[in-house]
Design a protein around this nucleic acid. Structure first.
Length: 849
RNA sequence: GCCGGAGUGGCGAAAUUGGUAUACGCACCAGACUCAAAAUCUGGCGGGGUUCACUCCCCAUGAGGGUUCGAGUCCCUCCUCCGGCACCA
C-alpha cells in the first residue's frame, strides 16, 4: 500500500489477481446456497455507455454482497450479437458482420474488465456463434413439432428503413422500436410463435412474481395482453345464408344495437356483392392506412352502409350492416354491434351518420327504487343524451331482460345465446402471436427446408446447426443477403432427397435473448441446450437487472419461453425471474440548455466510461453511480459528484494508512482485548459500527445502495471524529478501530472492490476478499444498542423538550420525567393533563386541555 | 381517455413504514494553511421572526380537507410532472 491512493495502479493489480485466482469462477456446490445475479444481455455496439456501467455496477454490488454473505454467486455476461447494426456496417463499410461483431465484443470486454465487474468470464456466450444458435434452432424444431411454431400469410408490420418485419411488440405505437420509423402494413408469409396459447398463463403467472417485480412492468404486460371477457354473438344476414359474428363485452346492451359494423378486411365485405361506393370506400381506407400520417393519432371515424341487413337474435330486429374504419380486423371477430347509447365510439359514429340512439341501461340510483320504463324508450334519444352512458346499470327496454342488473344480465344473456346456438361467452386478448421471421442475414437461420414434393420439411435435429455462410453480398438493396447465397439456399430434401430450397428468413434476435441465461448455467454443452441438473441448482434467476425498455418485449418473451420449456420437460418452474429491478436512465445536461436528457451521441451529451475511469478510477465512478440516486431513479451525471466519491475513498485510504502499523499489533479478537474496559469513545465507535452493519445489511436486501453508501460515510466520519489516535490508542481502542475499519472495508467492497481489496490486504489479510477469509460482518444488537437516549417530549403534539433516558427506562419513569421537565411544566401549568402518550425508547406526548 | 408511478432545501436525496422532517453528499458562504491559487482542513447552510448572547417562537414535505395524542407517511377532493397503452368493442 502506498501512502497516496493511485486508482489506476491498484485497479490493474487487483483485476490481474482476480483473473489469476479465478476469484469469480463458480461451479454448482450442494453445500452452499446459490444466488443467480443477472444483468441484461448487452448488444455489442462497440462501446459501453453509462447505462451499461450503471447496470453492471448495480449487479456487481449485489453479487459482492451475496458472495461475502456466503452464497455461491453466478454472475455471468454474454452478447446479444445478432442483429441489424452488424449488417449495416457490412453495407456501409464493407466489413464482414462476423468480424465487426467480434471486434466490438473484444473492445467491450476490455472495457468491462477495466470497470472490474466480477464476472465468471469462462461462461461468456455470444448469440452469433453456431454453438449457441444451434439451440435456438433446436427450440424452433421442438415448437414446430408441437404446433407452437407455424407459418402463415398475414399482414405484418414492415419497417421501410430497415427493410424487415417487426413483431407487434417491436412496432408498438406504430413506430419501429429501433429506429422510430413509421411502420407500414404488408402481406407476407412468415413464421410465428404461438405465444397466445400462453396468454392466460402469462397473466396468471404474474401472481407468482408480483412481490419481486415492479408494479409498472406488470401493468405494462397486463395492458399488453389485455384480457377481456365478453361474448360472441351471431347476427344472421337477411335473405342470405350468411351470418356475421360480433364480439362484445357488453352483451347486456344488445337491445340497444342499431347497426352491425364490419372492419374493412372482414370476409363478408369481400364476399358480398357490393355496391361500387362500398368498394371505393374500402379501397380509400386501405390506401390511407398504408401511408398513415401520424401514428397514434386517430383517424376520423368513417363508414358506409353496405345495404345488407342483419337480424338481432335477441329481439329479431333488423338493423343495417355498415363497414367502418374504426373496427379492427385483428381483434375479437372483426365486427361489432353498434350500441350508440352505451359506447363512446358507436355514439360518435351514430352522431356523424344520424343512426338511431336507443337507451337500454339506466343508472341505478338509491333514491329511485323502482325503475320506471322510459315512455320515450325506443325513440331516437340522441338529442337527450349528450354522450354515451357507459356505466353498468339496470336494463330497460330490453324485453324479458328489463329490470335486471348489467352484471347479472351479461352472464345470463351469454348463456342464453349459447343455449339458443347463436353465440357463446368468450375471452379475447390483445396479445398476438409473435412473428419471428426477419429478412436479414445476421441472425439464426430458421431450420426449415421447402421441397416441391414434401412441402415444408423441418431440418432433422442431427443436422443442426444450420450454419450461416461466411460470405454474402451486402448491397443494401433491401433483399435479404442470405437469399443471394446459392450454396446456402440450394440443398436437398431430408425426406425425399430431391433438390430443395432452404428458408432464408432468420430469427428475431429476441429469440436469442429469451433463454440465454439458462445457457450460462452450462455454456459449453454440446448435446443439449443445458444440463437439467445445472439448471436446477442455479435457476430461476434470483435478481435480474435491466432497463425498463424491455418491460414488454424481452420480459414477456422470456416468460413465455420458460413456460414452453417447462412443457417440453426442461425446467420445473413457471417463472424465470424471481426479482426484477428496472434501473433508471443516466442523463446529462444538454449543452447550452438546462435539460437533462439520456446520454447520446446525437445530443452531444455522452460521457465515455473510459475517460471517467482514466480520470477518477473505476471505483469512484461506480461509487458515485450507486450513491447519487436510488437505482430505479433517473441518474443525473455530475462530475463534482464523482469528485466527492474520490474524496471519500481518499479519506478512508488515509485512515487505513495511519492505522495500519498500530493495528498490525492490535488484538484481532475481542477476547484479545479482554481485561481492559472499553473507553467511552471506543464503545461509541463500536455502537456506530454495529448499527451501520445492521443498516447496510438491510439496505442491501432491498437494493438501497444509495443509503448504504451514506451509512458508510457516516461510519467513516464517526471513526475520524472518535478522537482515538494511533499513537495513543489502548489495546481496546485499537480493537474498536480495527473492527470499524474492517467492517467499513468489507462493506465498501461491493461499491469499490479494488481499493477495498488493497486496504484489506494492508490490514494484514492474505488471499483477497473472495478467496481469503473475509465475510460480511454480522451486527451485534447488544453492542449496537444505545446506552443513552434523548427522548423528545411533545406537548399537544409539538416538540417542546427532550429528556435523557436509557433503553431500559420504564414507561412510568419516562412519563414522570416528562411531566417534571421544566419546559413541559411551564406549558402545562394551570392546565389539565388529559393524557400522556409514552412510546418506549421513542417519544412522550403530553396532552393538555 | 384508460392504467401505473411520483411531487420533501439551490441540487441528488434520507426519514427505523404513524413517533425528533431535511441523514449522507453536491453546490454555495466564511475561516485556517498559502506570496497567490488549487488541493486539504474547520465551521455555517429550509424560510421568517426574536435575543448582546446561551436561547426561544412561528411557518414549511404540490394545494385543500379529514382521521389521530401525533401525518411527509393513512383516507377523500383537486393540481402538476413522468412513463405505458391508445378506436381492443
Amino acid at each position: 500500500m502506498d501512502e497516496k491512493y493511485f486508482p489506476e495502479k491498484i485497479e490493474e493489480k487487483w483485476q490481474r489477481i482476480w483473473t489469476e485466482t479465478g476469484a469469480f469462477e463458480v461451479e454448482p456446490d450442494d453445500e452452499r446456497p446459490s444466488f443467480y445475479c443477472l444483468e441484461m444481455l448487452p448488444y455489442p455496439s462497440g462501446f459501453l455507455h453509462m447505462g451499461h456501467v450503471r447496470n453492471y455496477s448495480i449487479g456487481d454490488a449485489l453479487s459482492w454482497y451475496k458472495r461475502l454473505s456466503g452464497f455461491n454467486v453466478l454472475h455471468p455476461i454474454g452478447w446479444d450479437s445478432f442483429g441489424q447494426p452488424a449488417e449495416q456496417a457490412a453495407i456501409k463499410r464493407g466489413i464482414n458482420p462476423l468480424d465487426w461483431t467480434e471486434e466490438n465484443i473484444a473492445h467491450m470486454r476490455g472495457q468491462m474488465k477495466r470497470i472490474g465487474v466480477s464476472y465468471d468470464w469462462r461462461r461468456e456466450i455470444a448469440a452469433h456463434r453456431p454453438e449457441y444458435y444451434r439451440w435456438d434452432q433446436w427450440f424452433f424444431l421442438k415448437m414446430y413439432e408441437r404446433g407452437l411454431a407455424y407459418k402463415r400469410k398475414s399482414p405484418v408490420n414492415w419497417c421501410p428503413k430497415e427493410q424487415t418485419v417487426l413483431s407487434n411488440e417491436q412496432s408498438s405505437g406504430g413506430v419501429c422500436w429501433r429506429c422510430g420509423t413509421i411502420v407500414e402494413k404488408k402481406e407476407r408469409e412468415q413464421w410465428f410463435i404461438r405465444i397466445t396459447a400462453y396468454a392466460e398463463e402469462l397473466l396468471e403467472g404474474m401472481k407468482q412474481i408480483e412481490a419481486g417485480w415492479p408494479e409498472r412492468v406488470l401493468t405494462m404486460q397486463r395492458n399488453w395482453i389485455n384480457r377481456s371477457e365478453g361474448a360472441f354473438v351471431d347476427f344472421a344476414i337477411k335473405e342470405t345464408d350468411e351470418k356475421v359474428r360480433i364480439f362484445t363485452t357488453r352483451i347486456d346492451t344488445i337491445y340497444g344495437a342499431t347497426a352491425v359494423v364490419l372492419a374493412i378486411e372482414h370476409p363478408l365485405v369481400a364476399k358480398s356483392v357490393l355496391k361500387d361506393d362500398v368498394a371505393q370506400f374500402v379501397e380509400r381506407v386501405r390506401v390511407a392506412r398504408q401511408s398513415q400520417v401520424t401514428p397514434g393519432e386517430d383517424e376520423e371515424k368513417e363508414g358506409i352502409n353496405t345495404g345488407l341487413l342483419a337480424i338481432n337474435p335477441f329481439n329479431g330486429e333488423t338493423i343495417p350492416v355498415w363497414v367502418a374504419n374504426y373496427v379492427l380486423m385483428e381483434y375479437g371477430a372483426g365486427a361489432v354491434m353498434s350500441v350508440p347509447a352505451h359506447d363512446e365510439r358507436d355514439f360518435e359514429f351514430a352522431q356523424k351518420y344520424s343512426l338511431p340512439v336507443r337507451r337500454v341501461i339506466e343508472r341505478v340510483s338509491h333514491e329511485q327504487e323502482k325503475i320506471e320504463h322510459d315512455p320515450e324508450a325506443g325513440l331516437d334519444q340522441s338529442v337527450m343524451m349528450p354522450h354515451a352512458f357507459t356505466d353498468y346499470g339496470i336494463l330497460v327496454n330490453s324485453g324479458d331482460w328489463g329490470g335486471k342488473l348489467s352484471a347479472d344480465a351479461k352472464i345470463e344473456m351469454a348463456r342464453f345465446a349459447e343455449e339458443q346456438g347463436f353465440g357463446e361467452a368468450a375471452v379475447t386478448y390483445r396479445l398476438r402471436d409473435w412473428g419471428i421471421s426477419r429478412q436479414r442475414f445476421w441472425g439464426a437461420p430458421i431450420p426449415v427446408i421447402y421441397c416441391e414434393q414434401c412441402g415444408i420439411v423441418p431440418v432433422p435435429e442431427n443436422e443442426l446447426p444450420v450454419v450461416l455462410p461466411e460470405h454474402a453480398e451486402f448491397t443494401g438493396a433491401g433483399d435479404n443477403p442470405l437469399a443471394g447465397v446459392a450454396e446456402f439456399v440450394n440443398t436437398t430434401c431430408p425426406t425425399c432427397g430431391n433438390a430443395a430450397r432452404r428458408e432464408t428468413d432468420t430469427m428475431d434476435t429476441f429469440v436469442d435473448s429469451s433463454w440465454y441465461f439458462f445457457r450460462y448455467c452450462d455454456p459449453r454443452n454440446e448435446s443439449a441446450p443445458f444440463d437439467k441438473k445445472a439448471i436446477a441448482y442455479w435457476t430461476p434467476v434470483d435478481q435480474y437487472i435491466g432497463g425498463i425498455d424491455h418491460a414488454v418485449m424481452h420480459l414477456l418473451y422470456t416468460r413465455f419461453w420458460t413456460k414452453m420449456m417447462r412443457d417440453i420437460g426442461l425446467v420445473s418452474f413457471d417463472e424465470p425471474v424471481k426479482r426484477l429491478m428496472t434501473q433508471g436512465m443516466v442523463t446529462n445536461l444538454v449543452e447550452g440548455t438546462s435539460e437533462w436528457k439520456r446520454m447520446s451521441k446525437s445530443l452531444g451529451n455522452g460521457v465515455d466510461p473510459d475517460d471517467m475511469i482514466a480520470a477518477y478510477g473505476a471505483d469512484a465512478v461506480r461509487l458515485f453511480i450507486l450513491f447519487a440516486a436510488p437505482p430505479e431513479n433517473e441518474l443525473r451525471w455530475q462530475e463534482t459528484g464523482i469528485e466527492g466519491g474520490v474524496r471519500f475513498l481518499r479519506r478512508v485510504w488515509g485512515m487505513v494508512w495511519r492505522w495500519r502499523e498500530r493495528l498490525s499489533e492490535a488484538p484481532r479478537k475481542e477476547d484479545g482485548a479482554a481485561g481492559a474496559e472499553f473507553s467511552d469513545a471506543a464503545r461509541a465507535l463500536r455502537r456506530k459500527t454495529h448499527q451501520t452493519i445492521a443498516r447496510i445489511t438491510d439496505d442491501f436486501e432491498e437494493l438501497h445502495f444509495n443509503t448504504s453508501v451514506a451509512a458508510l460515510m457516516e461510519l467513516s466520519n464517526a471513526l475520524a471524529d472518535s478522537g482515538v489516535q494511533p499513537e495513543a490508542a489502548s489495546a481496546t481502542d485499537a480493537f474498536a478501530v480495527r473492527e470499524a475499519l474492517e467492517a467499513l472495508i468489507v462493506m465498501l467492497a461491493p461499491f469499490a472492490p479494488h481499493v477495498s481489496e488493497e486496504m484489506w490486504e494492508a490490514l494484514g489479510h492474505a488471499g483477497g476478499l473472495i478467496k481469503g477469509a473475509a465475510r460480511w460482518p454480522v451486527a451485534n444488537d447488544e453492542l449496537a444498542r444505545k446506552e443513552e437516549l434523548e427522548i423528545p417530549v411533545q406537548v399537544n403534539g409539538k416538540l417542546r423538550s427532550r429528556i435523557r433516558a436509557t433503553p431500559d427506562t420504564t414507561e412510568e419513569a419516562l412519563r414522570a420525567a416528562a411531566l417534571e421537565d421544566e419546559k413541559v411544566r411551564g406549558l402545562t401549568e394551570g392546565r389539565q393533563v388529559v393524557k400522556v402518550i409514552v412510546v418506549p425508547q421513542r417519544l412522550v406526548n403530553v396532552v393538555v386541555k
